[in-house]
Simulated assay, not measured.
Amino acid sequence: MDLRIFTEPQQGATYDTLLTVARATEDLGFDAFFRSDHYLSMGPGDGLPGPTDAWITLAGLARETQRIRLGTLMTAGTFRLPGVLAIQVAQVDQMSGGRIELGLGAGWFEEEHRAYGIPFPEERLARLEEQLAILTGLWGTETGKTFSHDGRYYRLQDSPALPKPAQRRLPVLIGGHGATRTPRLAARYADEFNIPFASPEDTERQFGRVRAAAEAVGRPSGDLVYSNALVVCVGRDDAEVSRRAAAIGREVGELKSHGLAGSPAEVVDKLGRYAAAGSSRVYLQVLDLHDLDHLELISSQVKSQLE
């Protein structure tokens, strides 16, 4: 099972902090460093020193790392026009030497849109479908030819469809709990389907919907990677688990019920349940970005048992 580090910088992190975590992610053998795309903190904490932009961050990390994959869970479709996003992502992919992955969602956090003057339209899922068609269309257009799109929300006329990503096919992630439209979008556009913060039982059910949607459009369901995103809180003993839970403002019991918490053995066992549900990759939501010993423990005593 692939383990990836997933951060929530809107809760309060500088670029230097993110760089430190990304370098630790690489040094400790994890597969990838991902971050959220939010501009307002949620839950406990004041969010100081303020948000960092996801794609500016990834551009910097692209030049300061060598191996790990880099991406978003999830870029909000409301934040950027799809043509502009296609240019940004392709450029950062070139800067990284072909290590970028784009997680794209409809956008959901209305409060951050109000806080920063970003429009929050009602028909976000319909817009997301057009955005996916535009992004994949621009990247897939043969060099020297043009791309046009005449949709309800976006119109592109004779775009040169440049620049191209460094990768022949830049992976696109789609995720969520929706029972009908989300699986259909994943079947058509995604390279990976991710379900966040779900039980093994709900994971298996949602993966089944995505597989069925893929087969319905004539695509082998095995073409997609199936993954989870789960909060992580690992300790060598109960006291260490409790200390790490308190540091992120969570209860141990709640973390064990809804995430990956406890001793390394407990976490390995629970990851096995997700693997049985069909997951081959897990994004570990690390909320205390200053606790690098936590990452070392996960690498040496959890990740090592899954290889």
Rank of each mutant, 00 (worst) to 15 (best):
L73A: 11
L185Q: 08
K164R: 15
T75Y: 12
G97H: 03
V89Y: 03
A214K: 02
K270Q: 13
G50N: 08
L306M: 09
P49M: 06
I100Y: 01
Q131D: 14
S221A: 11
L128K: 07
A245W: 03
S257W: 05
S304Q: 07
D269W: 07
Q66N: 13
F79A: 04
S300P: 09
S280Q: 10
G208I: 06
L61Y: 01
P9K: 00
L230H: 03
T14M: 01
A115F: 15
G12Y: 00
G12W: 01
S263G: 15
L287Q: 03
L19Q: 00
R99Y: 08
G218E: 07
G249I: 11
R114T: 13
L162W: 12
V225A: 08
W55A: 00
D53W: 07
S227Y: 00
G29T: 09
L81H: 09
L132S: 08
E251W: 11
R4F: 03
D31Y: 13
V282N: 04
G71K: 05
E296I: 06
S300H: 10
L28N: 01
V241Y: 06
L297C: 09
F30L: 06
L48C: 10
V302Y: 12
L18I: 04
R63V: 10
D27P: 01
A106G: 07
P264K: 04
A32L: 04
D237M: 08
G77F: 05
L58T: 01
R67T: 14
K256L: 03
Q131P: 13
L271Y: 02
A32G: 07
L297H: 05
L18W: 00
A90H: 11
L70D: 05
A214I: 06
G140K: 14
P119T: 09
E142S: 10
H294Y: 04
F34D: 00
R250V: 05
M1P: 08
P160Y: 15
W55R: 02
S96A: 15
G259V: 02
K303F: 14
I87G: 04
Q301K: 10
T65S: 01
I68Q: 06
T141E: 15
G151Y: 11
S36I: 00
A246V: 07
A133D: 13
I118M: 09
R281P: 02
W55N: 02
L284Q: 01
C233Q: 07
D223R: 12
T203H: 03
R250C: 04
P183A: 12
E64G: 01
P165F: 04
D46M: 10
Q10G: 02
F109R: 04
G249R: 05
A246S: 12
E215V: 13
A161Y: 03
P220N: 09
T25H: 02
G98N: 07
L224P: 07
W139D: 10
R124T: 09
H258C: 04
G77N: 10
Y189S: 08
A22V: 05
L162K: 10
T136E: 11
L81M: 07
I118Q: 05
A90G: 10
G117A: 15
G105M: 11
P200S: 11
P163H: 12
T141L: 12
R35Q: 14
L260I: 12
D37I: 01
L292D: 03
K303E: 08
E266H: 13
W55H: 02
A212D: 13
A261M: 04
F109L: 10
E296F: 10
E123Q: 11
